[in-house]
Amino acid sequence: MTAIQTIAIGSLNAAIVHPREVYKAAILSNSASILFCHNHPSGDVTASSEDLEISQRIKKAGELIGIELLDSVIVSSSHYYSMKEHELI
């Protein structure tokens, strides 16, 4: 089963995301794994320190409850950045 869930909608330059909201949707969907994705409207898909921090927190939380984080992806209108491809998670 595949489920797509919007967890948070941010402001111009920030969004508040907590692992509990991410995994609530995953648990309710009986997920074995998740893909965490967010956009950078600026078009620059470079991962910020905040992007790296939340991805690591989500990964660690998933390890505790047995739901694997497959990747954390940043997208823009024409590019993407995979933290897994860059060995950051």
Rank of each mutant, 00 (worst) to 15 (best):
Thr2Trp: 00
Ala3Cys: 09
Gln5Cys: 13
Thr6Phe: 13
Ile7Glu: 00
Ile7Ala: 03
Ile9Pro: 03
Gly10Glu: 08
Gly10Lys: 11
Ser11Gly: 14
Leu12Ala: 12
Ala14Met: 07
Ala14Phe: 14
Arg20Glu: 09
Val22Pro: 00
Tyr23Met: 03
Tyr23Ser: 06
Ala25Phe: 10
Ala26Asn: 09
Ile27Arg: 07
Leu28Phe: 10
Ala32Gln: 11
Phe36Val: 02
Cys37Val: 15
Cys37Asn: 05
Asn39Gly: 15
His40Ile: 05
Ser42Cys: 08
Asp44Met: 09
Val45Asn: 00
Thr46Lys: 09
Ala47Cys: 05
Ala47His: 06
Ser49Arg: 12
Glu50Ala: 15
Glu50Arg: 06
Asp51Arg: 12
Asp51Tyr: 14
Asp51Pro: 11
Leu52Glu: 13
Glu53Pro: 06
Gln56Glu: 10
Gln56Val: 14
Gln56Asp: 07
Gln56Trp: 05
Arg57Asn: 07
Lys59Gln: 08
Lys60Arg: 13
Gly62Asp: 03
Gly62Met: 06
Glu63His: 09
Glu63Cys: 04
Glu63Trp: 08
Glu63Val: 10
Glu63Ala: 07
Glu63Tyr: 05
Leu64Phe: 10
Leu64Pro: 01
Ile65Ala: 04
Ile67Ala: 05
Leu69Arg: 01
Leu70Asp: 12
Leu70Phe: 15
Asp71Met: 05
Asp71Arg: 01
Ser72Ala: 15
Val73Gly: 02
Ile74Phe: 03
Val75Ile: 13
Val75Asn: 01
Ser78Trp: 10
Ser78Gly: 04
Tyr80Phe: 04
Ser82Trp: 00
Ser82Met: 03
Met83Asn: 07
Lys84Cys: 02
Lys84Ser: 04
Glu85Ser: 12
Glu85Asp: 14
Glu85Ala: 14
Glu87Val: 13
Glu87Thr: 14
Leu88Gly: 04
Ile89Phe: 02
